[in-house]
Simulated scan of single mutants.
Amino acid sequence: MRQLIFFFTLAFSAFLSAAEVTNIAAAPEKVSPLLPGINAPALHLKDKSGNTIDLSARYREKISVLVVYRGGWCPYCSRQLAGIQKIESQLIKMGAQIIAISPDSPEALAKSTVASPHYQLLSDNEMQMSQALGLAYFLDDNTALAYRNKLGVNFVDLDGKDKVALPVPAVFVIDKKGLIQFQYANPNYKVRLDESVLLAAVKAASQL
């Protein structure tokens, strides 16, 4: 069962993120991503320019391909984003838009080479969206040493110990009512969704 950690009051040291722990699993294998048929979280996130984006409004515009990735530093994520960009024109013809979310700050997103009016990068640097989607997990202590204060997001657990969290990479297809129609998440961050499967999922959602 996924480990649920509930916080009401958190004391943060100066170097820790102000992120709040509400739903972070103990390991990637223990996450529980939201399933098709459930409403997608409609939060407010920042774009690369620091503008606030209302996801509920974005959902209503078009079918949304929501890509959750670990960060621009991750080579597997970069390849995935590039692969989706290659099929962007096909997705647009189906009436879809692409929204890619990561723990990267807006400043880090501004350095991305992804540039398209149909392909938006958003910052989830407090991992509220990752937690709401059921994708957030804590890194083990050894792995966290390589990530701490560099990559991922810092939290404080119930015992007062600081930990680093990341999202399990995932792809959701969300219809204009905000319902999840397709979901793919794999605890093995090296394995990503094939673009042909994504095209099929968007086609099916567009015909509903």
Rank of each mutant, 00 (worst) to 15 (best):
A108I: 06
P41L: 10
G134N: 07
S130H: 02
Y59D: 02
L16Y: 00
E195S: 13
L151W: 06
L43N: 07
Q181C: 13
P41F: 03
C74I: 09
E61K: 09
A96L: 03
L43Y: 00
N188C: 11
Y147A: 11
K93S: 09
I98R: 00
L66Y: 03
P187S: 07
C74R: 07
E107F: 09
W73K: 09
P117Y: 05
A115Y: 12
T143Y: 11
N51I: 10
A108H: 05
Q3N: 14
I84W: 01
L10Q: 15
F172N: 09
R148I: 08
A100L: 06
T143H: 10
A27P: 04
I87W: 03
F155T: 07
N39K: 15
L122K: 07
E20I: 15
C74G: 05
D157E: 05
D47I: 05
E29I: 13
P106G: 03
Y69L: 05
G50A: 09
A115T: 12
L91K: 01
Q85E: 11
Q3P: 07
F155H: 10
F7D: 08
P103L: 05
S102L: 11
K62A: 13
M129F: 14
I38Y: 02
I87N: 01
L55F: 09
L145H: 06
N23A: 11
F12M: 14
S102W: 05
D104L: 09
T52W: 15
S32W: 10
L91M: 04
D175G: 04
K46A: 14
V21A: 07
Y76T: 12
I24Q: 01
K46N: 14
V114K: 01
G178N: 06
S105N: 00
L158K: 13
S105R: 05
Q120N: 04
K176P: 03
A115W: 12
D194N: 06
C77I: 12
G160E: 03
S130Y: 01
V202D: 04
V68H: 05
S130F: 01
V168S: 09
M94I: 15
T22G: 09
L4T: 11
F172E: 06
K161C: 11
L45I: 12
A57D: 06
E20G: 13
F138C: 12
A185P: 04
L81R: 08
D175Y: 09
V156C: 04
M94D: 11
A144L: 05
Y137T: 13
V156W: 01
A25P: 02
L10E: 12
Y137E: 04
G72C: 06
G178M: 08
L55R: 01
E20T: 12
N23V: 13
I92E: 14
A115K: 15
L66H: 04
V173H: 00
L208T: 13
I101N: 00
I87R: 01
S32T: 14
Q85H: 10
L135A: 01
G72L: 13
I53Q: 02
R58E: 12
L145Q: 15
V173A: 00
G72V: 02
I38E: 11
L198E: 04
M94Y: 13
A110W: 08
